[in-house]
Amino acid sequence: MKMTPRVVLIGSVAILFTIVLIMVVTPYFTVTREPSEIFRTRSEIEAAGRRIYIANGCVYCHSQSIRAFDWDMGAERIAQAGDYVADHPILLGSQRTGPDLSQEGGEHPDDWHVAHFMNPRSTRPLSIMPRFDYLGPKDIDILTTYAQSLGLKEADDRMARQREWKEKLIAAYEAGPEKNTEFLHAQVPEGWRSIPNPYPTSPAGLARGHKIYQDFCIGCHGPVGDGMGPAQPYIYPPPFNFTILKDRGISGGILYYQIMNGITGSAMPYFKKDLESEKIWEVGNYVAVYFINQSDANAPPRGIDASYEPKAP
């Protein structure tokens, strides 16, 4: 058979027809339409937020489907067909330029999302997401409501936890710096409070900690650790001011735990999926040295030094 234009055209149409049959038509008639255990219908304002999400092309960078081999934000639950029975069109997406959003609801409080939509670099300094401040406060609030619905019933549970802790955090913040610090540290498990930073304070370690701080923390806590970063106007309680901890003997373990696990109800997210263990210790040590004016790095009790560590004095 000669590859004439007619043959190429017929072959191309046949291939396209086959792809549509396999990828679109067959799933439409065979995929279950039974709701999953987390399914619920969306409210009118959540549906309006979904329309804003579609109109602004968010699906081009964010998927809404976690697969078995994914491990990222939202990976607590593998997507099921029954999660999407009310979605038309289904916004699964094919790109992961940004994080997957299938379980975004309740990962952060509302004010974090408002700051993020106003300027993504204020909450994630390395983000390449465009600003959405042109939407205006009303549409940003509606879009936030939609984002907080992603995950449906499980998102509702996470949002209830965010609201519960936000009330407690606001009360602690409004009681003054001393009470606020005491409350926050009391939420750290006792064993963590007495653990020193296991890595020595070295120029290389502090340089790495500085880079991590710039990449993840500076948007909220600011360049001098006083909580006056660009996200601050949108967040309440505001980002923590590290400088009020000067000379109080805060342990590396407290800093590690709060960086690792975040502070639910506040805009402080968890970083245990973004940063390896040593990076958390090093950014904590950077905060301790430059903003708190003390560090317990490599203090007793000590274990066996890591192989690369310089010899202790």
Results as ranks from 00 to 15, higher is better:
residue 150 L to T: 00
residue 43 S to T: 14
residue 82 G to N: 07
residue 41 T to K: 14
residue 25 V to E: 09
residue 107 E to Q: 14
residue 291 F to Q: 08
residue 30 T to M: 10
residue 184 L to F: 12
residue 84 Y to V: 05
residue 231 A to L: 03
residue 178 E to T: 11
residue 102 S to N: 07
residue 79 A to V: 09
residue 301 P to G: 01
residue 40 R to G: 04
residue 256 Y to F: 15
residue 113 H to P: 01
residue 124 R to T: 07
residue 253 G to H: 05
residue 194 S to Q: 10
residue 126 L to I: 13
residue 22 I to R: 10
residue 80 Q to I: 03
residue 262 G to T: 01
residue 75 A to G: 15
residue 17 F to V: 13
residue 24 V to I: 15
residue 50 R to L: 11
residue 96 R to K: 15
residue 164 E to Q: 06
residue 289 V to Y: 05
residue 111 D to V: 01
residue 204 A to L: 14
residue 245 L to C: 07
residue 83 D to Y: 07
residue 159 M to C: 02
residue 201 T to M: 09
residue 279 K to Y: 08
residue 234 Y to M: 14
residue 154 E to N: 10
residue 151 G to M: 02
residue 163 R to V: 03
residue 206 L to T: 03
residue 152 L to D: 01
residue 254 I to K: 12
residue 184 L to C: 14
residue 163 R to N: 06
residue 256 Y to K: 00
residue 281 W to Y: 12
residue 29 F to N: 09
residue 35 P to E: 01
residue 255 L to G: 13
residue 176 G to R: 04
residue 24 V to Y: 12
residue 126 L to D: 15
residue 105 G to N: 06
residue 43 S to L: 08
residue 264 T to N: 00
residue 13 V to N: 08
residue 271 F to Q: 06
residue 218 I to C: 01
residue 7 V to W: 07
residue 273 K to M: 13
residue 107 E to I: 11
residue 134 Y to N: 04
residue 72 D to Q: 07
residue 57 G to T: 06
residue 125 P to S: 12
residue 148 Q to P: 04
residue 208 R to G: 04
residue 99 P to Y: 00
residue 201 T to C: 07
residue 244 I to M: 06
residue 42 R to T: 00
residue 35 P to R: 04
residue 146 Y to Q: 04
residue 296 D to L: 03
residue 146 Y to K: 05
residue 109 P to F: 01
residue 54 I to C: 10
residue 48 A to T: 02
residue 64 Q to A: 15
residue 80 Q to Y: 08
residue 103 Q to A: 12
residue 200 P to F: 00
residue 281 W to E: 06
